[in-house]
């Protein structure tokens, strides 16, 4: 499998929109053609070869080495292939991606996975606010695919989420799953106040009852729910605590809300 490696020469002074850099968009291009591409930046547009050294051949995999949080829009509308980010990524990572994989070794900015409809986005570090959330004015957040954050996530992760899976191994900020419409969010750590505010449907799987839960969630009791076996099997191979979710014998306390919205959302607390 061929790979193209773009190594950042120096941290850019301005934010740079890296949306044009996807395996599909660069496929078949020579190093000179790739180098001549212009990327929108805070100042005048910049040439790719002014920012990066270019090695390898364009193919299924694109490696962005030495990346920093000023590189926005990495993997925008990704539709196949893999992007490996060695370092941090800026805002709008994987925005609107449909298929393919993005892996980030560091942390990412705001709106990662926003508008995503499929594929897999994995972040070894932390994610900023609005993970999988819609941009202002949009009606729907993430609509498919898998997002795995091994660190913490900021506020309003999963806002208006419609479908897909959001797994956050660490802690989350306030208003997790706000206005959530459907899909599944699981968190390994603690959850900030206001989780599930405006939640209509969907599932929030948590290790403990979060503080500051809206009063509009009602307790339905503790049960073994058989769909959790399907989830556990689908998550095999992922890092703990998701990959080791027990297939049998898992009991969860089920709270349903937000009764101020449609009220069919569920917060499942592992018993």
């Amino acid at each position: 499998m061929s790979a193209l490696r773009l190594t950042l020469r120096a941290a850019p002074a301005q934010r740079v929109d890296c949306a044009p850099l996807t395996p599909a968009a660069l496929g078949g291009k020579s190093a000179a053609e790739i180098g001549a591409l212009l990327l929108a930046a805070g100042g005048p547009p910049v040439r790719v070869d002014d920012l990066f050294t270019i090695e390898g051949t364009p193919g299924d995999t694109l490696v962005l080495a030495g990346a920093t949080a000023r590189l926005d829009g990495i993997g925008t509308a990704l539709n196949g292939g893999t992007i490996e980010v060695d370092g941090d990524a800026g805002d709008y990572l994987g925005r609107g991606m449909a298929t393919g994989t993005i892996r980030v070794s560091g942390s990412v900015g705001t709106f990662a996975g926003s508008g995503m409809t499929g594929g897999e986005l994995r972040v070894r570090g932390h994610a900023g606010d609005f993970l999988g959330a819609p941009l202002p004015g949009e009606h729907r957040g993430i609509r498919g695919g898998l997002v795995l954050v091994e660190g913490n996530a900021g506020e309003r992760a999963g806002d208006r989420m419609r479908r897909g899976t959001l797994l956050i191994k660490g802690n989350t900020g306030a208003l997790l799953a706000s206005r959530m419409v459907a899909g599944t969010i699981a968190v390994g750590g603690t959850v900030g106040p206001g989780a599930g505010t405006g939640m209509r449907r969907g599932t929030l799987l948590l290790p403990a009852l979060p503080a500051g839960l809206p009063a509009t969630f009602n307790d339905c009791g503790t049960f073994p729910l058989s769909f959790l076996t399907l989830l556990a099997r689908a998550w095999r191979g992922l890092p703990a605590p998701f990959g080791d979710l027990p297939e049998r014998g898992l009991r969860v306390r089920r709270l349903m809300g937000d009764l101020a919205a449609e009220g069919k959302g569920e917060i499942l607390i592992r018993a």
Partner: peptide
């Protein structure tokens, strides 16, 4: 109206609340 759908591993399932728990 109390039924819930779950899309897991590329397949859609329905969880229908019944008196003994859920019909998956």
């Amino acid at each position: 109206g109390f039924q819930q759908s779950k899309f897991i591993g590329g397949k859609r399932y329905w969880r229908v609340p019944v008196m003994d728990g859920e019909f998956l």
